[in-house]
Design a protein around this nucleic acid. Structure first.
Lengths: 349, 349
DNA sequence: ATGAAAGCGCTAACAG
DNA sequence: CTGTTAGCGCTTTCAT
């Protein structure tokens, strides 16, 4: 069943030494064409596949990259992982995946556990504290996604600007008072969203009521909706789309109309956003693109190119407000109007 | 930076031999408590972590399990992976993840590539042909999810029964003609859904028009909606929820109301289903539970318990129809799915 | 251009 | 109970 075909087997079949077999795979130009052909042929005949684990033992390189996410059930993360996976394969890396179940302690533990089997780890929306982050970063090359710490390489979505766009939009609709349903307190994204909101609120003359923190899921949205309504706001900005959907659902239950009675804004994966109910305005997060960027950052780092650019390891990826039916002029066909080309108004930062 | 702390280092520090160190970790009861304590202490002080790759080289066991999915962007699969991941950790397995991007050839290739680094592979909704499946299954222990082949271990969602429930529901609403938007031709689930549909259609006196095949995504749903409408059906059963959402979106664009003009049924992850627009009736698939079941099946198989139960390796997991607003009595506010002009709620509840 | 031999970090006999 | 030794499958000097 699980018979291991080794270099030796191939060597014997091709009547060469093991080193020649090895070289035929890893440094083909160093072996004569005819010999190499014989080796490759023998390998094919035997169904030989190099054992990457054994290889890594000696080379110190695993060709695997680790990925840690807080919760795969949150649609945001699969999308990031998708981007990582796609970009990783382009550079012949395989993916080691772990779900920390929103547990900060587990997060660090998982990274330690996989450290030896990967060349580096991409940590998505890390929930652990700075101290742990520091410690972990000393044992394995890391890339942070949507988290900032010292000058660790990071890919940051420009979520604060997304907040700004959202507020600008709401202000344009005539709103003067809106609620922010806050998410996980240790989340960098949450802080950024709040920060952007406050800044823009002042600029556009909108009052922001901060509610929460809530869990970043659908059920919390149900509950948060009532609280928001009690706070007498005309617009609700939810930490993410899962919560926003819960809000929508509860609003609907209470017979309130969106956006006629209340405007709702969520933050979500850009792909998912296009499928979701048109009454929800969304700040689209560039999930796949960020995943790809994270891999690139890691690959650079591993290739030693990391230190070359003087600690300029933190890349920011823009976000984009997607407005649907809620602002469509009467008679405008409802759809996912954004075609991915024409950006909405943006100021430089 | 990446200094490797080995058994030797620990051994030296604890003034014991390497084998004692090794045993302290893998067979703690075979080493005297005091010695073990000394070893563990030394290990902690040095920050030693066993190198699982090296270990696997000699034990033949990696404590990793591979997972292959066709498309992580399809919400169905992250949910399955979530279940796998959770159950896997309970048995101290880590996850190797690969996305085949709906490419049957890549699928087999990915499995071969990870074969040596995992103890077994869970293949979700395999798209590859039977021949490839057979070949792959000879090189690595496999568990199939929503795919059946010979007597390979498999976890099957009872999707045919879901179809039956859907048809029964539609018949009860008075429908006599419905469309089935077919998905990937090589998909077992697609065949099962169609089979269940046909069977139930006969039983309940409903006519089924088969359309497609379509790609299992949102965009295909947009397109399929037009075709379905042209076919003059009163109900549409889509291969999955991604397509169903596309259908909903297009119907909405065309000014058709769901479910007043057309009923739409999708198949989806049970957790996601609860958040999606209430106008969509869904056959909820037990994704997480199936993921867990798949791991259990694999663990059994690896423990040699596989052959004991006489080839009874195929487990079936029930599905369940979730009906929402579509069956609500007239006057029920339909949804947060409308064109942004006319309030949907007609009368109060 | 090719071969022989020495390990990578770990565990599994086999002795003591 | 603990230490010594021999590899797991692979790459890599160092010779030839």
């Amino acid at each position: 069943m699980k018979l291991a075909v080794t270099v030796h087997d191939v060597a014997r079949r091709a009547e060469v030494s093991v080193s020649t077999v090895s070289r035929s795979f890893t440094m083909p130009e160093l072996v004569q064409a005819s010999t190499r052909e014989r080796v490759l042929e023998a390998a094919r005949a035997l169904g030989y596949r190099p054992n990457r684990a054994a290889r890594s033992l000696i080379t110190g390189r695993t060709a695997n990259i680790g990925v840690v996410v807080p919760d795969l059930a949150n649609p945001f993360f699969p999308s990031v992982v998708k981007g990582i996976q796609a970009r990783a394969r382009e550079s012949d890396y395989a993916i080691f995946l772990a779900d920390s179940e929103e547990d900060p302690r587990l997060e660090a533990e998982l990274i330690y556990a996989m450290a030896k089997q990967v060349d580096g780890v991409i940590v998505c929306s890390a929930r652990m504290g700075d101290a742990d982050l520091k410690r972990v970063s000393e044992s394995t090359p890391l890339v942070l996604l949507n988290r900032r710490y010292a000058n660790l390489p990071a890919v940051l979505m420009d979520t604060a600007d997304g907040s700004r766009q959202a507020v600008q939009h709401l202000a344009a609709l005539g709103h003067t008072r809106c609620a922010f349903l806050s998410g996980p307190p240790t989340s960098w994204s949450n802080k950024e969203r709040r920060r952007g909101l406050r800044l823009a609120a002042r600029a556009f003359g909108v009052e922001v009521v901060e509610l929460g923190p809530f869990a970043p899921n659908f059920d919390a949205g149900l509950q948060a909706a009532d609280i928001a309504i009690a706070a007498e706001v005309g617009a609700i900005v939810a930490f993410n789309d899962l919560m926003a959907l819960g809000v929508l659902s509860r609003l609907n239950q209470r017979g309130l109309s969106v956006p006629d009675d209340v405007s709702v804004v969520g933050f979500d994966d850009i792909a998912m956003a296009s499928m979701i109910t048109p009454s929800l305005t969304t700040v689209a997060m560039p999930t796949e693109a960020s995943g790809r960027a994270a891999v690139e950052s890691l690959v650079d780092q591993l290739a030693g190119r990391g230190d070359a650019d003087g600690g300029q390891h933190q890349r920011s990826v823009p976000t984009q407000l997607i407005v649907r039916a809620s602002t469509a002029p009467p008679g405008h066909p409802v759809s996912n109007q954004w075609d991915g080309r024409k950006p909405l108004s943006r100021k430089g930062r």
